[in-house]
């Protein structure tokens, strides 16, 4: 039992003495009524600054607003019809999936691998741990710029290396689909440290007895990993994967810094496309419609992922 400032024996007398009102109040307190008020500030903030503007923004998807005029008209489902016929949208959705799902996949696989490596008792592992996590705290905008200087055609760091081997320089970011994978790679590079740290914690929390028990049953390296490590890492995997997926699907900064979504529309994600439609193409109504599509997709994917992973969690 934890010691704390308890109500003394006299207090219960006071409660009885002061009559029914006091008891009622206490009962209210005990039934947790007032407790629910504790999330009121959060609720107020979210409603005011997020939910209310969100619904207002949704209404815009049914208009033809250009983003800055004072007047606009309602056009019903016109923007949504346009979305179905827009050839670019399908490609952008594909890109968004690559950014979200592949980023998460790579980040978590490499994160786990790095965590396993750093868990080993080798010298310099602390230094490595720090180094891998460092890019995660740097602004994505800056990281995008740094990597842009690598992939530049003229004077880019990578092309310089190719020149050493007399290989012709390549314009890396000029091909949309290649650019998407490069951006996914940069995003992975930046945030793999986060996954690594989470997995490291998970690994270090698995009691060695489990491994010993498995060894006694004749399990070796891979089997130990499969049957002991993996299941007990599920909570860590859930946190890491869900957080990464939402972030990856919403990916914005890195894309803007490296290709701005180009060439044309080929490396846009849904969020950069929305930005482009709103501010550059002056089609705020259509941008809002795309925004709703993005919200829907992220919703479905994250709920699905969460349910999938939660069901696999094992109690320690």
């Amino acid at each position: 039992m934890i010691l704390y400032n308890t109500a003394g024996p006299d207090d219960s007398k006071k409660i009885h003495q002061n009559g029914k009102i006091r008891i009622a109040v206490n009962r209210c307190k005990n039934s947790g009524f007032f407790v629910n008020f504790m999330y009121l500030p959060a609720l107020i903030l979210l409603c005011t600054f997020l939910i209310y503007p969100f619904f207002k923004g949704m209404v815009l998807s049914f208009s033809n607003w250009n983003g800055y005029n004072q007047e606009y008209q309602m056009v019903g489902l016109q923007n949504y019809k346009r979305m179905f016929h827009d050839a670019n949208v399908l490609n952008v959705i594909k890109n968004t999936f690559i950014y979200g799902i592949c980023s998460t996949l790579f980040q978590n696989i490499f994160g786990l691998m790095f965590a396993l490596l750093v868990d080993q008792k080798i010298r310099g592992r602390n230094f490595l741990k720090i180094l891998i996590y460092l890019p995660a705290i740097i602004s994505a905008l800056i990281m995008g710029y740094v990597w842009y200087y690598f992939f530049q055609y003229n004077g880019g760091a990578i092309n310089d290396v190719l020149a050493l081997f007399s290989i012709a320089p390549v314009d890396w970011l000029s091909d949309g689909s290649r650019a998407v994978w490069i951006i996914t790679g940069v995003n992975t590079f930046q945030f793999v440290g986060v996954a690594m740290i989470i997995y490291l914690a998970g690994l270090q929390n698995i009691p060695t007895q489990y491994y010993e028990a498995a060894e006694m049953d004749g399990a070796t390296g891979l089997k130990k990993f499969q049957h002991v490590t993996l299941p007990l890492l599920m909570p860590a995997i859930t946190v890491s994967v869900v957080d990464n997926i939402i972030g990856g699907l919403k990916l914005f900064d890195v894309i803007m810094a490296m290709t701005k979504g180009g060439p044309g529309y080929s490396s846009h994600s849904l969020s950069t496309m929305m930005y482009n439609l709103y501010f550059v193409r002056q089609n705020a109504g259509y941008a809002a419609a795309i925004g709703n599509l993005m919200f829907l997709i992220i919703c479905i994917i994250s709920v699905f992922t969460l349910k999938c992973l939660k069901s696999k969690e094992v109690e320690m």
Binding site: N66, G176, G262, P263, G264, Y265, S266, R281, Q282
Partner: peptide
């Protein structure tokens, strides 16, 4: 009309990239 500049530039990129 206002807003066509970006239509021109983005389609130019698409065209040079070979998509249109």
């Amino acid at each position: 009309p206002d807003g066509m500049w970006d239509v021109m530039t983005q389609n130019a990129g698409d065209m040079i990239a070979g998509s249109i």
